[in-house]
Design a protein around this nucleic acid. Sequence first.
DNA 1: CAGCCCTACTCGTATAGACGAGTGGGCAAG
DNA 2: CTTGCCCACTCGTCTATACGAGTAGGGCTG
Lengths: 261, 261
Amino acid sequence: MTSLPSLLGDLDPTSDRAVFRQIADQLREAIDRGRFKEGEKLPSEAELVEHYGVSRMTVRNSFSILQGEGLVAAEHGKGVFVRPRPPVRRLASDRFARRHREQGKSAFIVEADAAGSHPQVDSLEVKEEKASQDISTRLGSVRRVLARRRRYLLDGRPVEFATSYLPLDIARGTQIAEPNPGPGGIYARLEELGHHLDHFEEEIRARMPSPAEVKTLRLASGVPVIHLIRTAFDTEKRAVEVCDTVMAADAYVLSYQLPAT
Amino acid sequence: MTSLPSLLGDLDPTSDRAVFRQIADQLREAIDRGRFKEGEKLPSEAELVEHYGVSRMTVRNSFSILQGEGLVAAEHGKGVFVRPRPPVRRLASDRFARRHREQGKSAFIVEADAAGSHPQVDSLEVKEEKASQDISTRLGSVRRVLARRRRYLLDGRPVEFATSYLPLDIARGTQIAEPNPGPGGIYARLEELGHHLDHFEEEIRARMPSPAEVKTLRLASGVPVIHLIRTAFDTEKRAVEVCDTVMAADAYVLSYQLPAT
DNA sequence: CAGCCCTACTCGTATAGACGAGTGGGCAAG
DNA sequence: CTTGCCCACTCGTCTATACGAGTAGGGCTG
């Protein structure tokens, strides 16, 4: 039972700042200054209750602020811990360049192997379905589509799930409709089918995850998602694929290289 | 006092799902289904206390979940409201193309005017300062830099703030060091100074905002930020500017066009 | 009629207490 | 020594209560 004042200071009763905010401020500052390091355990609720002389709900209130900021995460039965900043996966803008399609393995696998982490793909699902309004619009008024769903994991942690949508007249009956699309992925198959890829359009949004997304990506509270929608166009200016991707924001940095034309 | 059951249903006491989660689920679903529309007021805490027969803290707990998801916002003295989705600003990847630098006005102003909204730029600050470790690395080991800070508002709402960093040997004494950099902005000045722009690199992250960012961008809780770091390179492969931008994620969609080379 | 105030309703903050459930270490029984 | 149980400690959920403070509308007062 070492004394916390050395780490945490006192409350200012004259301040009009709410007590639980003051406590959150002190904890946040202590974390920022490295007094509590990544992965380290913060003082327990009971300890803070005693240190500050407040009720437990007040302390929990403080923690909930820091959780909302993505700074800490509570673990039932263990304590509240400073969230480690996970190593990030970089997505370069040239990741779909033709030269990367030569190898047999998918971009995700190759890239992860190179970074020394253990990649995995699961919840593979390939089926025909009705296109949503949005997908239909992007693909040019298609009614039904082939949907390829998959989830990506890095060292056992889910980091992204994605769905590719393709018009049936392109994909039906081809290897694209198979669970394993073969070397170079569906883009290689599209080119073999005569749909030479011209360019991609990517739309990027960030937002808080839905409960379903929290579940599939096992997100801690306070972690947003990056929502990326990529449309692939062939040289005839036709949209041949839309890929809808949701990524755990704490696992990714997107990187683009743009000409200054 | 109209009855809420028509909108909200009952609790399932046999479920092992926590009561406050069940309530949050029901409210979320009602919002998703459009039973409560954007900007509309949810039932008050007292009403929900009575409807579900739970204590007030339980209801507040439910609200705090939905706030964390960015779905609702509480207004002191008024009620809890469904957060309206603000109009988003699209940032196209060609926004720095040379052809857009012809006009006298900045890209932000032109674009906002075209969209019929009222643009504003404030908290302008231009000064020399010590480069942070990160900025120094990106600019190629520079010790001191010229920093240009500004905040952008759309119809009175702050949506983004940005800082440009330039090496002193380039910027000092030029119009770049003036509050108003002149027509075409600093990129036009850089080209006039012989630094012909070759390409940009953009890094994109998403995360929850710091308290300071919440303040400057007046963010509601449950709104992440998009953090964009752009480095401009001239034809000599030298990094001539780094622009660090923090955007309210609910106000932006980034859009990139990539060749399929 | 205009202005003010009062009141009812809203959410914000805080206390005190209770029980449940996950975790991990120590101790006791085999 | 190993196994298994128990207990202490942790956070999770929930109740009940109290007061503060912002808002809006009705009614009273001048």
